[in-house]
Design a protein around this nucleic acid. Structure first.
Lengths: 249, 249
DNA sequence: CAGCTTCCGTGCGTCACCGTACATACACGG
DNA sequence: CCGTGTATGTACGGTGACGCACGGAAGCTG
């Protein structure tokens, strides 16, 4: 089993052996090989829309170093992030069950690479690969846990706490205290107005918890930000980690 | 917990051969038989709490004519219904994946029978029964769709529309224009104050869409109620139906 | 440097829902 | 028939977020 090296720098470097999504790499060698033969690796860019609700899914994606945000879409331009998917996950799993259409928007939050498989190939492999079936089931379950937590959070917690939570989760996923995320983007994820984000972010900044300018956000006081955030941060974090833990051992 | 004995038939009709949960009945005869051998049928009562978040799951339940409400619990007494499960579904599926603990509260919304299996038995059967695996995966996926829709709905839609939606869905599940549901219960499901429900319900009643008294709700104008509800009604309805359609053919 | 786009900040009236407290009405058992 | 509990109704100030509109500032391009 070739586990990819854990040193990762961003763009300039193009390793001869491309890093692999962790879901894929958790498969046994022969299963993995068959799947990889059907894969190609593509680069996805910030803002790129991979799925649109109601539209047909063409490929299943396994992010490598990219980050995908899942946005549920209500009428109008109101959206709400119901989950996010990095190297530990995948999008498009439901096509294996015969669902042709996406039910959420999938948009790239951080540019990077993703392993990609055409739907027909994926379905064929799914049918005969039992390990893959278990994996998808398990991952869907963690997505469910995420979605539930987010539903609760966005119903009961005030914007400032939710913003803090999102920033912390983003940091964890990107492994960096600095990242790029505009108020506009956050507004879509949190399902609020852009000015609402501005107000909340500004409050966090006054408390010296973060600083930002033109989309470049930096977390200054991690502990303070956790205090300002809701419990949902730990819950999502733990559930996400625990849910898939056994797979990655 | 006091487990209810498996004799049933307290009041109205008691079919000699008890009806079966639809998920179970969709299994092939031999698979079904093995599972049924591990099952007993219990009666559950309104308000009974089957699972509590963070606590161990002891049994997996397949409702027959009962209806179970899944409530995500935030701190305090704030709750939000993230799905409901009737004869077409089950609760406790995640134990098959090794998750010991419930992540939502499961409370009985309508009394009735449920097929029940002890966790250990269920896990053993899950391991060797591929059809069961597919079934659980598929059902978890429809739960995810439900949860996402509810997250969006409770974020963006006003209480009156959400109440109308809940009433319509309840009607569909119970196959009856009349049912019992107190404002208090609805408040927990919708994640709002009881007085909020009273206000919204009272508005619907003034529009002659429903009538109610001491928990006995009757839908008077189905079409009107649909008009007053949000689109989420049809979405949840369709997705729930379509998601499991092939299983039930 | 001009001009454009992107991103952030502010102000103002409105509204849905909150927390709390209290009032009424029906139901049922002793 | 009275008491107790359950279910529903009303009232009031408070607030978080909304919609809208506009102002300003930082970067990109020509």
């Amino acid at each position: 089993m070739h586990t990819h090296p854990s040193y990762l720098s961003d763009d300039d470097r193009a390793p001869a052996r491309p890093a692999l999504n962790r879901l894929l790499s958790s498969l046994a060698d022969d299963d993995q090989g068959k799947l990889l033969a059907l894969c190609d690796t593509v680069r996805v860019d910030v803002g790129q829309v991979l799925y649109e609700p109601g539209q047909a899914i063409r490929h299943v994606y396994f992010p490598v170093d990219s980050l995908i945000s899942l946005l549920a879409v209500a009428e109008g331009r109101m959206t709400l992030e119901v989950g996010s998917v990095g190297q530990e996950g995948m999008i498009g799993a439901s096509v294996a069950l015969g669902h042709e259409l996406a039910l959420v928007r999938a948009v790239v939050q951080r540019a990077g690479r993703a392993n990609r498989i055409a739907v027909a190939d994926f379905r064929a492999e799914f049918k005969r690969n039992e390990a893959l079936q278990r994996l998808l089931y398990r991952y869907t379950d963690t997505l469910l846990a995420q979605a539930i937590q987010i539903a609760v959070c966005s119903r009961f917690h005030v914007l400032e706490a939710r913003l803090a939570r999102t920033l912390l989760i983003t940091r964890d996923r990107l492994q960096s205290e600095k990242f790029h995320l505009t108020h506009e983007f956050l507004a879509h994820a949190l399902g609020v107005r852009r000015v609402g984000v501005t107000k909340a972010a500004s409050a966090l900044q006054h408390q010296k918890l973060i600083t930002y300018s033109r989309g470049n956000i930096e977390i200054l006081d991690s502990a303070g930000l956790e205090a300002a955030s809701c419990r949902c941060y730990e819950l999502v974090k733990d559930k996400g980690a625990m849910g898939m833990a056994k797979v990655f051992l």
